[in-house]
Design a binder for these strands. Structure first.
Length: 423
RNA sequence: GGAGAGAUGGCAGAGUGGUCGAAUGCGACGGACUUGAAAUCCGUUAAGGGCUUUACGGCUCUUCAAGGGUUCGAAUCCCUUUCUCUCCGCCA
């Protein structure tokens, strides 16, 4: 949520910033609404102040056993006017609020301009795509030959866009998650958390999935709960409705969860394989930081995610997303793209964002420096990294001519020492 | 799922219709005393919004789990919901 005072006092600047995203703000509606708000709210408060004052006088009169009926009649008149003014104000405020919740975050100055992903700016590149002296296969072909990835089974049990894995691929998948978690805990100073995989409306509103992106979520109607689309939702909401002491910052959390996404509107995209699934696992990194530290934190968080790929020796590049490609809640985002030989392309495997105070404002997440007023926190999140996609990357980058897959060294301890997966 | 008890400030805990945003204690902060500290004493100490001010600030509204109701007036009375605890049932 953008700071309401910016919308009141600096509408033109807000509008210009959002324009960079290709988002046009309805300034006429907003300023008209704001003008009425000011009038009606003043009226309400004036009436209420009068009523409070009169009621107090009535109380005193009654204690002195005096007749207060004239004053009581007066307050009744005030109340009639107040009721109507109040309902006007409520309408205006809920309209304003609904508008506010649907406006994306302001962009950081360093975000490059551009309409779509073609304008993203490469920040760095690590290692080189492997050269094969045979034709590289994708993970679907590799998994089928090994008989360890089973899409028909997932369809039978559930539906399309789900996957079933057997044996050593299932184990490799688990190994990846365990490895990432341990790396972040032991090397990068994160605290592991285990949280619910379902979340309520307030939680999803806090991070910005609701109200605008409800169609992307799985919803359990009987219980009013949503399956989380990312651990970011539950982890970031740890600080919802709380005031964190400045000395405790930054908070750095790592959390391994399944993620559930309906993928509405992406029907034609990435239908082959397990690149885009309704259910996938992810190790998520979250920083809760003081405002002045959040951009340093973004670099750190991104580097922590990159460290996973470096340890796995998977080639990647890091790009700064341009204004048109950046997500709703983020002020700045780096995507990390891993090399996939099966697609002969770099594909997103992590997205690291600084949301500044956008989410903190929605969820009333604040910090306090000693003696000072509470201030909004800055929240950051990033995949560290997507486990399902990491599995694809390992399979495709470590494939051999005979269709076997060498297990990256750092994962072998999690694989009972096995060095390769063969049919 | 059944029965009962609860939800008040950073924490503990009083408050059952009127000057209550709320006693008291703890904690925190400032000051006095002290070489320093402890102890003691004095003082300050909830959040959010609006209007106003160059600024210090001033005025005002809201908030005692949430929503609704009764009333001139609600932390206090009534209804609904949520959550917590205890007992029973079921369950990994």
């Amino acid at each position: 949520m953008i700071a309401p005072h910016l919308l009141r006092n600096d509408l033109a600047a807000v509008c210009a910033n959002l324009q960079r995203r290709g988002y046009s703000l309805d300034t006429a509606t907003i300023s008209a609404l704001e003008k009425r708000r000011k009038e009606v709210q003043s009226e309400c408060e004036k009436l209420r102040a009068q009523r409070n004052e009169k009621s107090r006088t009535i109380g005193i009169a009654k204690q002195n056993k005096e007749d207060a009926s004239a004053m009581i009649a007066e307050v009744e008149t005030i109340n009639t006017r107040l009721t109507s003014a109040d309902s006007d104000l409520e309408k205006i405020q809920s309209e304003f609020n609904a508008l506010l919740l649907e406006i994306p975050n302001l962009l950081h100055d360093s975000v490059p301009d551009g309409k779509d992903e073609s304008s993203n700016v490469e920040a760095r590149r690590w290692s080189e795509p492997p050269q094969f002296d045979f034709t590289a296969q994708d993970h679907v072909a590799l998994g089928e030959q090994l008989q360890l990835i089973d899409f028909p089974l997932a369809v039978k049990l559930t539906s399309a866009r789900f996957v079933a894995m057997h044996g050593q691929i299932a184990q490799l998948h688990r190994a990846l998650g365990q490895f990432m978690l341990n790396l972040h805990i032991s090397q990068h100073g994160y605290r592991e958390v285990y949280l619910p995989f379902m979340a309520n409306t307030a939680t999803l509103t806090g991070t910005g999935q609701l109200p605008k992106f409800e169609e992307d979520l799985f919803y359990a109607e009987r219980d009013g709960l949503y399956l989380i689309p990312t651990a970011e939702v539950v982890v970031t909401n740890i600080v919802r409705d709380s005031i964190v002491a400045a000395e405790e910052l930054p908070l750095k959390f790592v959390c391994h969860t399944p993620c559930f996404r309906r993928e509405a509107g992406s029907y034609g995209r990435d239908t082959r394989g397990m690149l885009r699934q309704h259910q996938f696992e992810k190790v998520e990194l979250v920083h809760i930081s003081a405002p002045e530290d959040s951009y340093t934190a973004l670099e750190e968080l991104t580097a922590n995610a990159e460290a996973v790929l470096q340890a796995l020796k998977l080639p990647y590049r890091t790009v700064a997303l341009c204004s048109g490609d950046i997500g709703f809640a983020a002020a700045k985002t780096y995507d990390i793209e891993v090399w996939l030989p099966g697609q002969d392309a770099y594909r997103e495997i992590s997205s690291c964002s600084n949301c500044e105070d956008f989410q903190a404002r929605r969820m009333q997440g604040r910090m306090r420096r000693s003696g000072a007023k509470p201030e909004y926190l800055h929240t950051l999140n990033g995949s560290g990294i997507a486990v399902g996609r990491a599995l694809i990357a390992v399979m495709e980058n470590y494939q051999q001519a005979d269709g076997s897959i060498v297990i990256p060294e750092v994962l072998r301890p999690y694989m009972n020492g096995a060095e390769a997966i063969r049919a």
